[in-house]
C-alpha cells in the first residue's frame, strides 16, 4: 500500500479544521477553526488559502464552487473536503503526534510538562 504523503504542522491544523467544519468548510469557517486550533497565535486568512491550495495540489483535499449567495455580495463559496489520501495523512500525523506526547509525558509527567494531557498508552 502507498504510504501517506507527509504533511507539515500548519497543514495538519488546516486539515483538522476542514474535517471539523464538515459540509460547511469554506474559507471563512476554515479560517475561524484554524484560529481556534492555533490559539493564542493569530493566523492570516491568506496563509489558510495558500495552504489549502498546496493541499489541493498534493491531492489531499478537493474543492468546488457553490452557488452564489446574497450575503456574500452574490459571490460563491469555495468548499473543501478531505480526500482519502488526506484522511490517511491526517490520521498518520495525529498518531505520530500522540506518540510524541506519550514519550514527553513519560519523562516530564502529565502535570508538570503537559498540563492535563493524559498519555493514551500507559505501560
Amino acid at each position: 500500500m502507498k504510504s501517506a504523503p507527509s504533511i507539515g504542522q500548519f497543514e495538519q491544523i488546516v486539515m483538522a479544521a476542514v474535517l471539523r467544519c464538515g459540509r460547511d468548510a469554506y474559507g471563512v469557517t476554515i479560517h475561524e477553526a484554524v484560529e481556534r486550533l492555533s490559539a493564542p497565535k493569530s493566523v492570516a486568512l491568506g496563509a489558510v488559502y495558500a495552504t489549502l491550495d498546496r493541499l489541493e495540489d498534493k491531492g489531499l483535499v478537493s474543492s468546488w464552487l457553490s452557488d452564489p449567495t446574497p450575503e456574500r455580495g452574490g459571490r460563491s463559496k469555495r468548499h473543501y473536503q478531505l480526500e482519502q489520501d488526506g484522511k490517511r495523512a491526517l490520521r498518520e500525523s495525529v498518531l505520530a503526534a500522540r506518540r510524541i506526547c506519550d514519550a514527553v509525558a513519560e519523562v516530564w509527567g502529565t502535570e508538570e510538562g503537559l498540563g492535563r494531557w493524559k498519555p493514551v498508552r500507559q505501560k
Binding site: V28, A44, L45, Y49, R75, K77
Partner: peptide
C-alpha cells in the same frame, strides 16, 4: 470569486476590509 466573497462575509468596516485584503494578497 471565493476570496471576494469571503472578504465580503467578514466585512465590518472599510478599513478592516482593506486591511484584510492587503494581508491576504501576498499569500
Amino acid at each position: 470569486e471565493h476570496v471576494l466573497g469571503d472578504l465580503q462575509e467578514r466585512y465590518q468596516s472599510p478599513r478592516q476590509y482593506l486591511a484584510d485584503a492587503l494581508k491576504a494578497l501576498p499569500f
